[in-house]
């Protein structure tokens, strides 16, 4: 089985924001900007219960895509990638379960540590579910230009549902 291409792993590590696209009940793609948190194997994102419609969509259709497109969010790099994969929502403990990702999250957004200490100010923002994405297929544009065909890497077969 292939592994995540190194440049794409670097993009995931650096990106302050990526676009998570889920599929809604009408079959439309719905895109949400979120911080990608990559542990070397899976891509994680978190969602406050306040903005949890995306979680309902994932529960109904696990197929998602994560794209990294903004050079500003990756420190000026111009390469781009889209990762297609299967997501699952982990909501065992909305209050604190997501905090295991704090080391990766705070490395990208240091202010989150201070915000969390003040969770009394916005309690529901810190009631969160984890979105765990198993990458299936990666499309990579080394020059960031969609006029060139992407390098495609298949990481794993589609999940049997």
């Amino acid at each position: 089985m292939a592994s995540m291409p190194i440049p794409v792993a670097e993009l995931l590590d650096r990106a302050l924001v990526a676009e998570l696209t889920v599929i809604d009940g009408k079959g439309r793609p719905v895109t949400y900007p979120l911080i990608p948190l990559y542990d070397g194997e899976r891509v994680y994102m978190t969602s406050s219960t306040l903005f949890s419609r995306k979680l309902e969509h994932i529960d109904a259709n696990t197929k998602v895509a994560v794209s990294i497109t903004d050079p500003v969010s990756v420190g000026g790099r111009t390469d781009r990638a889209t990762i297609q994969g299967d997501a699952r929502v982990i909501a065992d403990d909305p209050h604190g379960g997501w905090e295991r990702l704090m080391p990766i999250w705070s490395a990208k957004e240091p202010a989150i540590v201070a915000f969390l200490k003040e969770r009394v100010a916005l309690p529901l923002f810190f009631e969160r579910a984890l979105i765990e994405i198993e990458p299936r297929r990666v499309l990579y544009w080394s020059d960031g230009d969609a006029q060139s065909p992407p390098e495609i890497t298949t990481l794993a077969a589609e999940a049997v549902s």
Binding site: T31, K63, A65, R80, Q84, G85, R137, A146
Partner: peptide
């Protein structure tokens, strides 16, 4: 730039910058 997105034939969303 914009990100064009659709659901591809395998059922996954696909996003490309245009």
């Amino acid at each position: 730039y914009q990100i064009v997105t659709w659901v591809d034939d395998s059922g996954y969303p696909m996003s490309v910058v245009v």
